[in-house]
Design a binder for these strands. Sequence first.
DNA 1: CGTCTATTTGAATGTACTCAAAAGCGGTGG
DNA 2: CCACCGCTTTTGAGTACATTCAAATAGACG
Lengths: 196, 196
Amino acid sequence: MYDLILKNVHRFIELTPEEKKLFISLLKPKKVYKRQLLFQEGNIAHYQYFVTKGCLRTYFIDNKGQEHNVQFAIEDWWTGDMHGFLTQKESRFNIIAIEDSEMLSIDRPSMEELYQKVPKFNSYFRQLLQNAFISFQDRILSGMSETAEERYVNFRKKYPSMDKRIPQNQIASFLGITPESLSRVRKNMTNKNRKS
Amino acid sequence: MYDLILKNVHRFIELTPEEKKLFISLLKPKKVYKRQLLFQEGNIAHYQYFVTKGCLRTYFIDNKGQEHNVQFAIEDWWTGDMHGFLTQKESRFNIIAIEDSEMLSIDRPSMEELYQKVPKFNSYFRQLLQNAFISFQDRILSGMSETAEERYVNFRKKYPSMDKRIPQNQIASFLGITPESLSRVRKNMTNKNRKS
DNA sequence: CGTCTATTTGAATGTACTCAAAAGCGGTGG
DNA sequence: CCACCGCTTTTGAGTACATTCAAATAGACG
């Protein structure tokens, strides 16, 4: 159950057996079923979640009532509202399960304890923040410079495992286009392939 | 000359006179003139820059050769390629002066020294990273949910001092639209105001 | 003053959107 | 196991918003 997260941590920092034990003792398992909300906007984000099984999406609702997907998370990914978690301000995001999912959650006090006792974890979590930062940066760049089709192609290249599991209309929302448009983009792509 | 940056730091952490001295001793003044490149893509970002005078823009060039503005920086702002600075990988960004500008720069070794001797600075720079993260997040959300006009209105609300100093075509590039479109958006807005 | 760049305006085009309807797919209950 | 219901995906037609290309006007700077 804890193998996956330990491997993940191990990609960034090395832990002694005692440190591993402490870390694991601070994690709380959590389950949500398909279509169930893990977290709702307006609340304070007390947890970050490491996904061990399943698939979730993080979205926000704009002032026209439209949903927009901000992030998908599958096994071996962290999810949660990073900004809200760090600032302890009301979140603008919702997180909902696309499949039955299992997670390991950690709250702020536990994270503080971890920083105190195993300072290496500062580095680990800082790198998570950096990665989140980078992925947002990439998204801004791609939003400014790429067509819908290019964004979709890149999405599939970058997250091949997600492409198979996530409904098209959800991917469309992530890419910032309508489901109809994505359907047409795909049609177009297969036509191109047949010609060549 | 160092008042501005000390005030800025002071908004997040408190420093003793000795700590201030150390901090200042690690900063290198730097000048660039209008239209001059401060930093060019393909290089490693060795510095972060705190602007004490002037105005700069950070942009990247997409594979169609088009420029896109990522950030503007005026007095009391930090600029530089955060991602490149943290990872020490080749940067995709260019930074150029919109006005004659003066900065205080800090390199990685100095920052490490600062972290060692005054650990409080970890917190300061982490908050800078957080703020950068948040502003990118906001930009993704606004790109997904707002029209060009709404984005422009919000830009003016958020950065009133920049709106006055930065050429329209540069603002357009920041908003992700063409200069012609921004011109029409503005025309539209004044027409609306006259009617009401 | 003249030159260079930024901004505005116009006309035609294109990309993605909305609205509407049909087809496809998956899960549920009889 | 099949029939039905709800949701997703596809397709079509018309529309809207922003783009491109081109040209005129305005502004900044030496």
